[in-house]
Design a protein around this nucleic acid. Structure first.
Lengths: 312, 312
DNA sequence: ATGAAAGCGCTAACAC
DNA sequence: GTGTTAGCGCTTTCAT
């Protein structure tokens, strides 16, 4: 196959018999061009299969119109729903979305922020929990600050406030609600299926649960706590451990819907009837949670927005 | 907020007291640079929060490392699973993914191919059904051909062969399998919940169903056929219509899992017990289909791959 | 090993 | 209205 290079604007101009500038104007609609010439330019462009080089365009100062999205994993319904929203809004505004996976690794996240910045995105959306580790959070905050200072917009979803626009659910209150719900139902032998303790979301939800327990004269130590990946598989693995070591539990709180779904799946395989034998709760109200078998009881978290003082 | 511009390589060079070329080499590792100078360059870059301009880099001839992904909607589990795979593989190869929604509109798809091409992606992944309309398919094929000719790689998922690498399930056989399954169970009063007839996937699955019916002395006309959006919501809407006009059906074939999920959800709301009162079948083996309530019977489609003769 | 300089393809002054 | 030209920020010869 002959690998013919992409044709350039100058090629179009040549074929149309006009100057580079005229071709640019005709195609971009930036200025008035005689309709006859404009037509010739468009024809030439079509004939050559001309596609403007976005890089050259960006370099020359035209608006780039790209946004960056960093999420844990698009495969997780919680994030795919966020991605859907971001892509829809972006598209409506003629913005292309660069998507990447943090996989909940601070370093990966940081390097993605960098390459998204390198691509001169005009906005950055980071969704998912922040990290308990102050150092990596500080690095991220710095990077975002620099990005903001050079004109970039940042939105954080489900992550602690960082001087940028933020939407974050009240994880502590949510944790308390979940625990109180089970406690009020009389459950005492409860298991917590948690994500990695490196995540602030996990930390916060646990704190909420702890405070609820406190109100009942109990503490987290009275519960069975398993940590695992904050994913469906992580939930399934945790359910296995749970069944082996603490088969007596009457209720499970999974710290997100993905893990809850994994727990439910494993219980279903083992023939354990939910909620008759064991109650299972999740978080986040992920799309699809209502469709699970058995239906998942999930805590819808009220979100709070922070509009950054740096906002323009 | 003072909007300080992004610093450029020349700024780094200046601070490090070296030439532009040396700074470039030190940062890019392209050639040998005295370790002392290299260190100064890296230090300067860090101090200035320097992030190379990917556009300038691309324009200057460096590899761009971007791929484009066009899917119906990342919110649909079928597509988010594909997106997950694409992003993972791309990331492992240092490639950034530009994602966009076709929303199953040929024009939108075409314009996305163009802007992805404009961004000089090295590969393009189109996932989802093709269109019955020959004209729009031809336009797309042309665009992809041009892209391929200029060195781009194309992969089609779930779409008819177009002289590029393709992975496509055997939709006709799948349709027949689904129909035969129900027919063998004795069902005769069957409803088909289909996506838009503009999609080849819908057309093919219906053709398979028709052939199965034919083997039983029946035709599609003997069934109740509803068309709707090829989504969860589309399935729910179709289920409503179905219940109103043909409450006697004993089985439903939804032409994809998204619609099947919508049907199940609506049946659940109405207190209709599946599969006791009505059987429901889906397609695609979408992740999560096994988690639905009630469990969805879904046809796993054997896929066939085509490696394009144009492949390099 | 290092620097000077020539583009990459385009837009936006700036002339006419 | 149209053409000429100077960059945008970088990589890469080409000298040295």
């Amino acid at each position: 196959m002959s690998t013919e290079k992409n044709s350039r604007l100058i090629d179009v101009a040549r074929v149309a018999g006009v100057s580079l500038a005229t071709a640019s104007r005709a195609l971009g609609g930036t200025a008035q061009v005689t309709s006859a010439k404009a037509a010739r330019v468009h024809q030439a462009a079509a004939d050559l299969g001309y596609v403007p080089n976005a890089h050259a365009r960006a370099l020359a100062g035209a608006a780039t119109r790209m946004a960056g999205l960093i999420i844990h994993d698009v495969g997780d319904p919680y994030f795919s729903e966020i991605a859907r929203g971001v892509v829809e809004v972006a598209e409506r505004n003629g913005i292309l979305v660069l998507i990447s996976h943090s996989r909940r690794e601070p370093d990966r996240e940081l390097s993605h922020i960098r390459s998204l910045r390198a691509n001169r995105v005009e906005a950055l959306v980071l969704a998912g929990s922040g990290y308990v580790d102050a150092d990596s959070e500080e690095e991220t905050a710095n990077e975002l600050r620099t990005f903001g200072a050079s004109g970039g917009r940042v939105v954080l979803v489900g992550r602690h406030h960082m001087d940028v626009d933020t939407v974050i659910p009240d994880n502590v209150a949510g944790g308390a609600t979940a625990a109180n719900h089970l406690l009020d139902l009389g459950h005492r032998d409860i298991a917590i299926v948690a994500g990695p303790s490196t995540l602030t979301t996990v930390e916060d939800r646990l704190a909420g649960i702890a405070s609820a327990l406190d109100g009942h004269g109990m503490s987290l130590d009275d519960l069975y706590l398993v940590h695992g990946d904050f994913t469906r598989d992580g939930g399934a693995v945790a359910a296995n451990k749970l069944l082996e070591t603490h088969p007596s539990v009457s209720a499970v709180i999974a710290l997100n819907d993905a893990m809850a779904t994994g727990v439910l799946a494993r219980f279903r395989e083992r023939g354990i009837v939910v909620p008759d034998e064991i109650s299972v709760m999740g978080f986040n109200d992920t799309p699809g949670a209502a469709d699970t078998n058995p239906a998942l009881t999930t805590i819808r978290l009220p979100s709070r927005s922070w509009e950054s003082s740096l906002s323009r």
